[in-house]
Write a protein that binds this DNA or RNA. Structure first.
Length: 586
RNA sequence: GCCCUCGUAGCUCAGCAGGAUAGAGCGAUCGCCUCCUAAGCGAUAGGUCACAGGUUCGAAUCCUGUCGAGGGCACCA
């Protein structure tokens, strides 16, 4: 609808250019906005004020010429010039009424568009280390990423959802070693557990399955495992040095193949768990991309070579550095350590290079806000390799803080007592979790009120929106019970009876839906959609309280039912996009 | 110390590619079911848009600085 109005302005401006009133360049960005105030009409353009200088005219005079040049359209009832030079558009009531059949015909596709023009976009999100179950912090990234991906798909992008599996790092070695130590305990060995190891129950589970399947095959005597290790922290040592030594010991005793087996068992177990968890949360991926595969395919070597060839690497203190500071980073970064190992950052360069090489025109990364320091260096790497860093959008999602009974719910990581995403789902349900996670802008800290998320009241925005949907279904059931025919055909007869203020308001909100979806998608901001749905539900509830739908007058009844059918369709479409169910009854 | 994000009603937040009198929800106060689900609706009160400058027809929105909150500054991942 907005686009149609925009098009009218664009052709008006073209005429003014043809008349020589305006220069032909720089006019492409016509600004047409929904008005905030009814009295200013439905749409408003500031074009005359913006262009007055170029036209060497007063804004109001230019506005007048602009209005004269607007092509006639059945969409528009009248146009007026207001204030310093705003052109205000009042739409014809018929234009709004026509929305109802449009929505009923388009159905689930109402709100979808093709502004993305089939461009390929990759959305990478969650990508938590597979060292344990997902916690509530990951949940926000999961919900946010899933909705961003769905929004982009809804406006015509070809979306590829991807999870980057950090299956190659030191944290994974710590996990593998933790599993092995627990396994040894199950075998009856008595050993101390490193303070830096993973202590969650899931580690015991993995160890138990290992033990069940392989018996004592991986068993070594406790003193053989512990002999000569540097002391752990409680014994006055360094926990990092200690755990590294334990890892090295595990590798030596088990040998590469058997160590890998333990390692992969832990990896697979946890990854399966994460995949299952996310899937139950309505979050599914097209690809689980293995970091290890980058090494195996030589992608990391290739990335280093490309940087070297481009002259952006140098050696210092025995390490190989990338001159990222030349591309906007704070300081240069190490790419190959003095011990010959590459860094996490090196993998990241290779990974992002790989993304662009796979032909994605745009890449969206969704990271925890604690990783924000990495944005400049990854962009620096892309720039250094001649790629456009603006093809990469990084969304930084702030942490979610849980509240229960007005108190901050505690969560600590290593101890294994953290609140997992699974626990949260169990407690508040998938719908509430999804909705709460995306109702705030990602840069905002999220106060997640567990009591509110569970409450079945109007205070709870999830129930509020869902209730509107259920109410409409209920009205239709009532109609059936009373033997009133419901005609879902999209005809326009009777619709001119929708003259009440509440009906006008609803029609207007319904007409805005595609614009909201587009704006939310392009800005990568799911919360816009959540806010819209609340507003639509509110307008419906107000209407419900003010008017009876199942009235005696058949024409009026038909019109009202068609209207609420349209409302129901838009509620469904919107809820579906944010991954929340639309219940028939509550 | 340097960098990033944030600062809008008592609370939680929208609004920020500049636009007309700054909006919601919660909480507070007062109302609304003989009626399709009251898991609902209406009304009232509530603001120096952190502060100070600047840019211009116009600034909550853009720029600079100050203050405050959070986060990041590894040859960890």
């Amino acid at each position: 609808m907005k686009q149609q109005v925009k098009d009218l302005f664009a052709s008006a401006l073209e005429r003014l250019v043809a008349d020589g009133l305006l220069p032909g360049d720089g006019l492409l960005d016509v600004q047409v906005e929904r008005t905030r105030d009814q009295r200013h009409g439905d749409f408003s353009s500031n074009a005359a004020m913006v262009l007055a200088k170029q036209a060497r005219t007063k804004p109001r005079d230019l506005a007048a010429r602009l209005v004269e040049s607007l092509p006639p359209s059945p969409l528009i009832e009248r146009v007026e010039i207001a204030g310093p030079g705003f052109v205000n558009i009042f739409l014809a009531p018929a234009a709004y009424r026509a929305r109802v059949p449009k929505i009923l015909v388009t159905g689930p596709a109402y709100g979808r568009s093709d502004v993305g023009a089939g461009k390929r976009v990759q959305v990478e999100f969650v990508s938590a280390n597979p060292t344990g179950p997902l916690h509530v912090g990951h949940g926000r990234g999961a919900a946010y990423g899933a909705v961003v991906a769905d929004l982009l798909a809804a406006v015509g992008f070809r979306v590829h959802r991807e999870y980057y599996v950090n299956d190659a790092g030191r944290q994974m070695d710590i996990l593998a070693t933790s599993v092995w130590l627990r396994y040894l305990e199950l075998c009856g060995e008595d050993l101390p557990f490193p303070s830096n190891g993973y202590r969650g129950d899931y580690v015991w589970d993995i160890a138990a399955s290992l033990h069940q399947e392989h018996g004592d095959d991986y068993r070594y005597a406790g003193d053989q495992v512990c002999a000569g290790l540097p002391p752990d922290e409680p014994a006055g040592g360094d926990k990092e040095i200690h755990i590294d030594a334990v890892i090295a010991r595990a590798r030596r005793l088990l040998g590469d193949d058997r160590y890998r087996l333990v390692f992969d068992r832990g990896l697979k177990h946890i990854l399966d768990d994460i995949r299952d968890d996310l899937s139950r949360f309505g979050v599914d991926y097209d690809e689980w991309f293995s970091e290890r595969s980058l090494t195996e395919r030589g992608a990391i070597e290739r990335a280093i070579e490309r940087l070297r060839a481009a002259g952006h690497l140098y050696e210092r203190d025995g390490a190989l550095w990338f001159r990222s500071s030349a591309f906007g980073d704070q300081k240069d970064r190490v790419v190959v350590r003095d011990n010959g190992q590459t860094t996490y950052f090196t993998s990241d360069i290779a990974y992002h290079l790989d993304k662009l090489e796979r032909g994605f025109e745009r890449v969206v990364d969704i990271w925890g806000a604690d990783h924000h320091g990495y944005v400049p260096r990854v962009k620096a790497a892309l720039a250094a390799l001649g790629d456009d860093p603006d093809r990469l959008d990084v969304l930084l999602v702030q942490f979610a803080i849980l509240y229960r009974g007005g108190e901050r719910a505690q969560m600590s990581t290593r101890s294994g007592e953290f609140v997992t995403l699974r626990q949260l789902r169990k407690e508040v349900g998938r719908d509430a979790a999804r909705f709460f996670y995306i109702m705030r802008r990602c840069e905002q800290h999220l106060d997640f009120d567990l009591d509110l998320a569970k409450s079945q009241s109007a205070d709870n925005p999830v129930y509020y929106v869902q209730y509107a949907h259920a109410r409409i279904c209920s009205v239709l059931r009532q109609a059936a019970e009373r033997g009133m025919a419901v005609d879902p055909s999209p005809g326009e007869v009777n619709l001119e009876q929708l003259t009440a203020a509440h009906e006008q308001a609803l029609l207007k909100v319904l007409s805005r839906y595609p614009e909201v979806v587009e704006a939310a998608a392009l800005a990568l901001e799911p919360h816009q959609l959540a806010h819209y749905l609340r507003e639509l539900a509110n307008d419906f509830h107000t209407y419900y309280n003010a008017h009876q739908f199942l009235v005696e007058d058949e024409g009026l009844r038909d019109a009202r039912i068609k209207l609420i059918l349209a409302v129901r369709q838009v509620l469904r479409n919107g809820l579906d996009l944010i991954g929340v169910s639309a219940p028939e009854s509550m």
